[in-house]
Computed example of a mutant assay.
Amino acid sequence: MRHRKAGNKLGRNHSHRRALLRNLVTSVVIEDRVETTVAKAKAVRPLVEKMITLGKRGDIHSRRQAAAFLQTPESVSRLFATVAPRYGDRQGGYLRIVRTGFRQGDGGEKAMIELLGAEQELGAKQQKRAEAKAKKREELERQLAEQGGNEEGGSEENA
């Protein structure tokens, strides 16, 4: 009997499951959006909400508790500086789980777990990425044009 045994096992032992959930929480805090399985998304939701509640509290004890759970110092500073103030007047429900289909290899159901209100930030990141990609493409095309011009010029000199 599993009386008073809350939480999903996710097919892992205790230490592996704890490491997996800590990594997922850290990724959600840093990236605002993570794609994973539905079971993992449901398991990580209360942990992320607890971290955001610690961030909203904002005292040194909360910061130390968050630092003990999150993997990187950057995630702790981001939690307290940008993520938690976003939800100052909200009483919970900081996450959205969106089912995104099935995985190609084993058919596992995938889901996107994302922080609410991060759409503007994610849009800005996406735009920045698109601009960097366009700039890189222009640079590559310019280099190819220069190489093409050099090769044609070199063949005329030899002829």
Rank of each mutant, 00 (worst) to 15 (best):
R18N: 08
G7A: 04
V29H: 04
A19L: 15
A39N: 11
T36F: 09
A6M: 07
T37Y: 01
L20W: 04
T37R: 06
A19P: 00
R12A: 01
N8A: 13
L10K: 03
K40H: 10
N23Y: 06
N13P: 02
H16I: 07
R2F: 09
H3N: 10
R22C: 09
H14S: 14
L20G: 00
T37W: 00
E35W: 00
R4K: 08
H14E: 09
A39V: 14
R12H: 04
A39G: 09
A41T: 11
E35H: 07
H3S: 06
R22S: 12
V34W: 02
G7L: 05
V28W: 02
V29T: 10
R2Q: 10
K9S: 13
N13V: 11
V34A: 07
L10P: 01
V25R: 05
A41Y: 03
V38R: 12
V28F: 07
I30R: 13
L20E: 00
N13L: 07
R18K: 11
I30H: 06
V25F: 10
I30M: 15
T26L: 09
N23L: 09
S15L: 13
K40G: 09
R12E: 06
A19M: 15
S15M: 10
V38H: 06
E31N: 15
V34K: 07
T36P: 03
L20V: 02
E31P: 00
V34H: 03
T36N: 05
I30Y: 11
R17V: 09
R4L: 14
R18M: 14
K9Y: 02
L20A: 05
V29Q: 03
A41R: 04
R22M: 14
L10V: 03
L21G: 02
V25M: 12
R22Q: 15
V28A: 06
T37M: 03
V38K: 09
N13W: 02
V38T: 14
N23K: 08
E35F: 03
R18E: 10
D32T: 04
L24Q: 05
E31Y: 10
R17L: 06
G7E: 00
K40E: 13
L24D: 03
A41F: 01
L21R: 01
T36A: 08
D32V: 05
S27T: 09
V38G: 07
K9I: 12
A39M: 12
T36M: 10
L20D: 01
R33K: 15
T37C: 04
V34G: 05
R33A: 15
R18P: 00
L10A: 02
K9M: 08
T26C: 07
G11Y: 02
A41P: 07
G7I: 04
L21A: 03
R12D: 03
